[in-house]
C-alpha cells in the first residue's frame, strides 16, 4: 500500500523554481534511495514533503493531502525528518532532546539507546557538546521518538568518520529489518544505498528521471544521471 505519493510536484524559492515535476512513491515498509547530483532538488523535495516550503501538485501521505497542512501537522501524521546538518536541540541534554520529541508508540528512550548505545552513555550531556556522529545519532533518535511511519534521512552520514558512518548504516539496516519502517534515504554513497534500500528514485534538475528497483539500475543510468 502506498504511504507517500508525490506526483508532478513543483516548488520554488521565491522567483527561482527548484522543482519542475517530482514523482515519488513510497510503499509501507519500503526503503527508497533518493538520488541525484548536488542541487537537483532532493532536499527541496524533502522540504516540500515536510511542509517547510510551499509546493504544488499532488502530495498525499496516508490519504491526507499534505499541501494544506502546516509543518507540525505533517510531522504528526507520521513523517519523521532527520534534517540535513545534524540539527538537534543543542541546548538540551540527550535525554531532554528525546523527551521533548516523544510521542507514544514502539519507540521510546530505551529502544533508541539500544539502537545507539553511545547515546545511552551520554544521556545527561548537552547536545552541543556531543561529537558530530553522536549529534547525528541523536537527531535520528529524536525523529524515532516521534514514532514516525516514514523516516526521512537527509544526508545522515555526511561529513562523518567512516566508522561512525558504518554505525549509522547498520542502525538503518536494523530499523528496516526489525521494524519495517518506511524510509526515504538521501546519501552520497551509491554502494551503501544499494545495500540499504529496495528502490531508487533519481532526480535531475527538479524532475524525476528514473525510478525502479535497484536490480534494474544499470551502470549506464547511474553514469548518465549521477556521474558514477
Amino acid at each position: 500500500m502506498t504511504l507517500l505519493s508525490l506526483s508532478n510536484v513543483t516548488a520554488a524559492y521565491g522567483a527561482s523554481q527548484a522543482l519542475f515535476g517530482v514523482d515519488l512513491d513510497i510503499a509501507e515498509g519500503e526503503a527508497v534511495a533518493f538520488m541525484g547530483r548536488n542541487g537537483m532538488g532532493k532536499s527541496t523535495t524533502v522540504k516540500a514533503i515536510c511542509r517547510m516550503l510551499p509546493a504544488h501538485g499532488t502530495l498525499v501521505f496516508d490519504g491526507h493531502d499534505l499541501t494544506r497542512l502546516p509543518s507540525h501537522r505533517a510531522a504528526r501524521l507520521g513523517i519523521g525528518l532527520v534534517p540535513e546538518g545534524r540539527r538537534c536541540f543543542r541546548d538540551l541534554t540527550v535525554a531532554e532532546n528525546l523527551a521533548a520529541a516523544a510521542r507514544p508508540g514502539h519507540w521510546d528512550r530505551a529502544r533508541v539507546t539500544a539502537l545507539f548505545p553511545r547515546l545511552g552513555e551520554r544521556l545527561t550531556q548537552r547536545a552541543a557538546s556531543l561529537s558530530g556522529g553522536e549529534q547525528q545519532m541523536l537527531t535520528i533518535g529524536r525523529a524515532l521518538m516521534t514514532n514516525p511511519r516514514l523516516l526521512i534521512l537527509d544526508e545522515a552520514t555526511e561529513g562523518l568518520a567512516p566508522i561512525v558512518r558504518q554505525e549509522i548504516w547498520s542502525a538503518i539496516a536494523t530499523l528496516k529489518a526489525e521494524t519495517g519502517m518506511a524510509m526515504l534515504v538521501i546519501d552520497k554513497s551509491l554502494a551503501e544505498l544499494r545495500t540499504a534500500c529496495d528502490r531508487a528514485v533519481i532526480l535531475e534538475r527538479g524532475r524525476t528521471v528514473w525510478a525502479g528497483p535497484f536490480a534494474d539500475l544499470s551502470a549506464e543510468t547511474t553514469e548518465r544521471h549521477l556521474g558514477v
Binding site: H72, R76, P83, A101
Partner: peptide, 9 residues
C-alpha cells in the same frame, strides 16, 4: 522550525 519537524507547533 526545528520543533516543527518533531510535530510540535
Amino acid at each position: 522550525h526545528r520543533v516543527e519537524t518533531v510535530g510540535l507547533d
